[in-house]
């Protein structure tokens, strides 16, 4: 594989895409494009039309209206040519559980016409890439969740696809595997693959994606780089409060009480409940009610800063829901 970076050439073009299921309009006149060599984040709450769109691009679903082209091939006319250059890494662990890692990769890569020494080489390369070369003879069912995720990726990339669709590839994996997967995706991009990436984990999207599209109710509600999207929200600011560690306090109760205060739009704790991000309207001026709530729980403030809203805030502003809520 040659090393490449994103170009201005559009690799995937979606225009006027519409898909209905009976009366339900799952995708409504959607337009976007993905540049060659780009990692394109595709976000949306559950039922937003995200999976439908990806399934259409992956040739699994037919479209009702509009046009989709991949690498210059028209989806309606050249679906088979598109299939040959796509690699799908589904959200599910789509493996044959009783086959070894090697056999799984060989099976899925073999579907793309790879045979003999070429197939062997591709399998070996893919397993090395995801760090499973040592586990080649191990059955998928005997692997840990993180290893299965990595094998899931290996099965989707072994045939060296030009377009890789990664549908939440890090669900349920530990931090180490997540980091391994993230690094792998960057390498794939550097080797010239175009990647469409979905996740429910915003920091991942921020970390890895060149551009992000947010869709809701089948429509595109936001598109751009992280910085461009952050500028979309102009009527919200964030207050970030850091506390001294106090295990066992009622963080959920605190969030509930904060969210009913005037001008507070959202409050969310980090994983250790030591950092609280509160999104407030621009009219918010008095922090006394907030401090009172903290004092009621005997929380000791280490620092309190005003920050620009993050991508989660943007997502919330655009869709009305948090990404993790789905």
């Amino acid at each position: 594989m040659e090393n490449r970076t994103a170009t201005n050439e559009q690799f995937v073009t979606v225009s006027g895409l519409t898909k209905r299921f009976g009366d339900l309009v799952a995708v409504d006149n959607l337009d976007f494009s993905v540049a060659e060599g780009e990692i394109f984040g595709f976000l949306g709450p559950n039922g937003a039309g995200k999976s439908t769109t990806l399934n259409i691009i992956a040739t699994l679903l037919s479209l009702d209206k509009g046009e989709v082209s991949v690498a210059g091939y028209d989806l309606n006319k050249d679906a088979r040519a598109i299939k040959a250059i796509i690699g799908l890494v589904p959200q599910e662990i789509a493996l044959l559980p009783n086959l070894t890692a090697q056999e799984n990769v060989a099976f899925f890569a073999g579907l793309y016409g790879l045979k003999g020494s070429r197939l062997k080489e591709a399998v070996q390369k893919a397993l090395v890439f995801v760090g499973l070369a040592e586990q080649a003879k191990k059955r998928a069912s005997k692997m840990s969740g993180g290893m299965q995720r990595r094998l899931n990726i290996a099965c989707g990339i072994a045939h060296d696809p030009k377009l890789i669709i990664l549908d939440e590839p890090t669900v349920g994996v530990d931090a180490q595997s997540r980091e391994h997967i993230m690094e792998g995706i960057r390498i794939l991009r550097d080797r010239g693959a175009t990647i469409i990436y979905t996740s429910h984990y915003m920091p991942e999207v921020q970390e890895i994606c060149d551009r992000i599209a947010i869709i809701d109710h089948g429509r595109l509600v936001g598109l751009g780089t992280e910085q461009e999207l952050l500028r979309v929200v102009t009527d919200v600011k964030s207050i970030v409060v850091r506390f001294e560690d106090k295990p066992g306090f009622d963080s959920d109760g605190l969030i509930r009480r904060l969210c009913v205060l005037p001008d507070v739009q959202r409050a969310v704790f980090n994983e250790g409940a030591t950092e609280l991000r509160i999104d407030v309207t621009l009219g918010f001026a008095d922090i006394t009610p907030l401090v009172k709530e903290f004092m009621a729980l005997d929380l000791r403030i280490q620092s309190l800063n005003s920050e620009a809203p993050d991508l989660e805030t943007t997502f919330l502003a655009l869709t009305g829901r948090e990404l993790r809520q789905g």
């Binding site: 040739t59 589904p90 789509a94 899925f108």
Partner: peptide, 14 residues
Amino acid sequence: RKEGTLRRVLVSPH
């Protein structure tokens, strides 16, 4: 459908 294997097979050029 639950496993996702068929989806992956269907994406192939077969």
